[in-house]
């Protein structure tokens, strides 16, 4: 294999690096503005894009068998998502309960 061909084999990593940097700068710009629900969704999409690029190209997951990809993706992302969405309603309930207690305490004075 020629030297030029060997070096071109690394090019994909630096292309991914460039995309990661561009996305990060974009997310930084959005992160310094007042966050709306739409902007938060864009930031989460940017986060998942960056995670996919790192997992797919740097960790070579894209070139592994589908069963390994599924185990990693379901194992981490789906479990994390289920974990968060199962406890998120409890967080909101705690918030509502503390706010209603504050209202009662404030009203009793």
């Amino acid at each position: 294999m020629s030297q030029t061909h060997q070096l071109s084999g690394y090019r994909i990593y630096w292309i991914v690096w460039s995309i990661l940097l561009i996305v990060t700068v974009g997310m930084m710009f959005l992160g310094t503005t007042a966050l709306t629900t739409a902007l938060i969704l864009v930031l989460l999409a940017g986060m998942l894009l960056k995670a996919s690029l790192i997992g797919g190209y740097f960790m070579h997951l894209r070139f592994e068998r589908a069963n390994l990809i599924v185990i990693v993706a379901v194992g981490i992302l789906a479990t994390a998502g289920i974990l968060f969405f199962l406890i998120a309603p409890d967080g909101l309930r705690v918030l509502n309960a503390s706010q209603s207690v504050n209202l009662h305490v404030g009203g009793g004075r």
Binding site: L68, V72, G75, I76, A80, G91, S98
Partner: peptide, 26 residues
């Protein structure tokens, strides 16, 4: 890879806990 999955779940737990605290804080 199995270690990475389990270690990833450790961070998933920490970040989910952080999300809970954020939602529950006025």
């Amino acid at each position: 890879w199995l270690f990475i999955i389990t270690d990833g779940l450790l961070f998933a737990g920490l970040l989910a806990g952080y999300g809970f605290v954020r939602l529950a804080s006025p």
